[in-house]
Amino acid sequence: MKISNAELIISAAKKFQFPEGPFPEVALSGRSNVGKSSFINTLLTRKGLARTSQQPGKTQTLNFYFINRRFHFVDVPGYGYAKVSKSERAAWGRVMETYISTREQLKGVVLLIDARHKPTEDDLKMYDWLKYHDLSVLIVATKADKIPKGKWDKHVKIIKEDLQVEEEDTVILFSSETSYGKDRAWKEINALLYSDKERDLSDEEEPAKEE
């Protein structure tokens, strides 16, 4: 995917702040410190566009990024950070419930999980919640560079089995350090954003072979 334009257009805490318009969007969710900001920056080739919070778990807004003036990435609050109060978690939950259940432009969710570890209880709950809302999910196993390549298949298998990943959902490995998985991620995200009839691949580069 060639990125000609990428900008943060709003950090929304209420439904009335969500951008209007017909542009399709994909939400990005994951446990705090899973590497979500690095994933966004790597995909968009924009160092520092998505900023890592100095206080994990403190981001309470949905950050809408407008990409190529065609679609949105929506960075949603990270979950699973123990130091966040119950009232803060409840507030996030209300915003997320509203967004997930009412947002017509939402075409699917990218769920990021740390490839080095078994999915957490929060990861399992998030995947089940997204499937309850009948959403397509792309599972991105981050920090693949921290795992020996010979063990990649084993770690992917663990994620699939623990989450009980449904057949229509995909699990891919990704590394923001090496950009491994970037082309595959774009291919899967494009599939979430657009139906076969809508899909426009004319601005995509030929996927590079990943080592």
Score class of each variant (00 low, 15 high):
residue 3 I to Q: 03
residue 3 I to G: 00
residue 4 S to D: 07
residue 6 A to F: 06
residue 6 A to W: 00
residue 10 I to C: 00
residue 11 S to K: 05
residue 13 A to T: 15
residue 14 K to E: 11
residue 16 F to Q: 04
residue 16 F to P: 00
residue 18 F to G: 10
residue 18 F to I: 02
residue 19 P to T: 05
residue 19 P to E: 02
residue 21 G to P: 10
residue 22 P to E: 15
residue 22 P to R: 12
residue 22 P to V: 03
residue 24 P to L: 07
residue 25 E to Y: 11
residue 25 E to D: 04
residue 26 V to F: 00
residue 27 A to I: 04
residue 30 G to E: 03
residue 35 G to S: 09
residue 35 G to D: 09
residue 38 S to A: 15
residue 40 I to H: 12
residue 41 N to C: 07
residue 41 N to E: 11
residue 43 L to S: 06
residue 43 L to P: 02
residue 45 T to S: 05
residue 46 R to E: 14
residue 50 A to T: 12
residue 51 R to Y: 13
residue 51 R to N: 02
residue 53 S to T: 14
residue 54 Q to E: 14
residue 55 Q to G: 09
residue 56 P to D: 09
residue 56 P to K: 07
residue 57 G to P: 02
residue 57 G to L: 02
residue 57 G to H: 01
residue 59 T to C: 08
residue 60 Q to N: 03
residue 66 F to Y: 13
residue 67 I to Y: 10
residue 67 I to L: 10
residue 68 N to I: 00
residue 68 N to C: 02
residue 68 N to A: 08
residue 69 R to G: 04
residue 69 R to E: 13
residue 69 R to P: 05
residue 74 V to S: 06
residue 75 D to N: 10
residue 76 V to N: 10
residue 76 V to G: 00
residue 77 P to K: 12
residue 78 G to W: 02
residue 80 G to S: 11
residue 80 G to P: 04
residue 82 A to T: 04
residue 86 K to C: 12
residue 88 E to C: 10
residue 90 A to G: 07
residue 90 A to L: 14
residue 91 A to Y: 13
residue 92 W to N: 09
residue 96 M to S: 01
residue 96 M to E: 12
residue 98 T to E: 15
residue 101 S to G: 08
residue 103 R to I: 03
residue 104 E to F: 12
residue 104 E to W: 06
residue 107 K to H: 06
residue 108 G to T: 03
residue 108 G to P: 01
residue 111 L to C: 03
residue 112 L to A: 09
residue 113 I to W: 13
residue 115 A to P: 08
residue 118 K to R: 15
residue 118 K to H: 15
residue 119 P to I: 01
residue 119 P to M: 08
residue 120 T to W: 05
residue 124 L to H: 02
residue 125 K to P: 05
residue 126 M to D: 09
residue 129 W to S: 04
residue 136 S to A: 15
residue 141 A to C: 10
residue 142 T to V: 13
residue 143 K to N: 03
residue 146 K to Q: 13
residue 149 K to H: 02
residue 152 W to T: 08
residue 156 V to K: 14
residue 157 K to R: 14
residue 158 I to H: 07
residue 163 L to W: 13
residue 164 Q to S: 14
residue 164 Q to R: 15
residue 166 E to W: 14
residue 168 E to T: 11
residue 172 I to W: 06
residue 172 I to L: 02
residue 173 L to I: 09
residue 173 L to K: 00
residue 176 S to N: 01
residue 178 T to V: 12
residue 180 Y to V: 01
residue 182 K to A: 01
residue 182 K to C: 05
residue 187 K to P: 08
residue 188 E to Q: 15
residue 190 N to L: 04
residue 192 L to D: 02
residue 194 Y to W: 15
residue 197 K to P: 07
residue 199 R to K: 14
residue 201 L to P: 05
residue 202 S to E: 10
residue 204 E to S: 02
residue 209 K to D: 07
residue 210 E to S: 13
residue 210 E to A: 14
